[in-house]
Design a protein around this nucleic acid. Structure first.
Length: 281
DNA sequence: CTCCTGTCCTGCCGGC
DNA sequence: TGCCGGCAGGACAGGA
């Protein structure tokens, strides 16, 4: 669920709440999520100041004054709850890490399904860390373009949909935006990745960038008042062209859904793919 | 090396 | 109404 756009919005919300502030209290409420929490996490975070935040793929990096980076991955159900000094908190069963800041603000990392991850990595070793050393380029950066994509896909027999989900090819795309981008580019998700022409790589790159930018924009508009709603960062309402719209007409189709069946839902390596057979070939 | 499948976990939804 | 099975998804291990 949280893919690049959602993670970007969470990072921005977190930034507004914690940038420049000192962590004064750390409450780690269980020993692991998907992986164990770092050794001595609380002691290593205590009294450290947040120097900057960045997003890498679906990960959030919180740079600390200790020159460590506190790394979050939201998994599939992770959220960040932001509370101000006057809010009261009764920790629930899914509140796994609670950070209190010097101004009384509180950040709660919640994750019902516990697929999320929290890591602490030395700043000068982060690029070599196994989660990041093989990670592909940021799709919204200059490093992601048609020539790069064509080279990464060359000789690959896997479906292009699966290739978009491979974080070593490009970072941050998940199941929803893979379907959306392929729809926008007019490419059949089942096509072997290596069979895409350079023109198709070009339109796919453009579609990936556009789909992600639009989603961030949609999330940004809900973010500005996040404190006035429920303080939850993690998900936002967004309408999709094909995802979760099986049987419905796609936005660009004027064909008869009774004849064509509309948007199709197929399984590719165990995951749902949605696409329009009329417009994607 | 490449590709695919199974696993982790809980909430939710459809079917009976 | 209530229960239960199946599904959802990100990363990664392990097998073919």
């Amino acid at each position: 669920m949280p893919e690049l756009p959602e993670v970007e919005i969470v990072k921005r919300g977190l930034e507004a709440a914690i940038l420049g502030k000192k962590l004064v209290q750390i409450d780690q409420r269980r020993k692991d999520l998907r992986i164990p929490f770092p050794e001595n996490l609380a002691a290593r975070l205590k009294d450290m100041r947040v120097e900057s935040l960045q997003r890498r793929g679906k990960y959030i990096w919180v740079h600390l004054s200790s020159h460590d980076i506190l790394v979050f991955h939201l998994g599939m159900s992770g959220r960040m709850l932001i509370l101000s000094a006057h809010d009261s908190l009764t920790a629930g069963p899914h509140d796994h890490l609670i950070l209190t800041l010097e101004d009384g603000g509180v950040v709660v990392f919640q994750d019902p399904r516990r697929f999320g991850m929290v890591m602490l990595v030395a700043e000068d070793g982060i690029e070599q860390h196994k989660s990041f050393s093989a990670m592909g380029p940021e799709p919204l950066g200059n490093g992601f373009h048609a020539d790069m994509l064509a080279a990464a896909l060359a000789g690959r027999s896997m479906a292009i949909k699966a290739a978009l989900l491979d974080q070593r090819i490009v970072a941050g795309i998940g199941n929803i935006y893979a379907s959306e981008a392929l729809y926008m580019a007019g490419i059949d998700p089942q096509r072997p990745a290596g069979a895409l022409s350079i023109d198709e790589c070009e339109s796919l790159c453009r579609a990936v960038k556009e789909v992600l930018k639009k989603a961030i924009k949609a999330g940004g508009s809900t973010l500005k008042d996040y404190r006035h709603t429920d303080g939850n960062l993690g998900y936002f309402q967004h309408s999709f062209s094909v995802y979760d719209r099986e049987g419905q007409p796609c936005p660009d189709c004027d064909c008869d859904v009774k004849m064509t069946g509309g948007i199709k839902n197929i399984k590719q390596s165990g995951r749902s793919t949605y696409y329009c057979p009329q417009r994607q070939s």
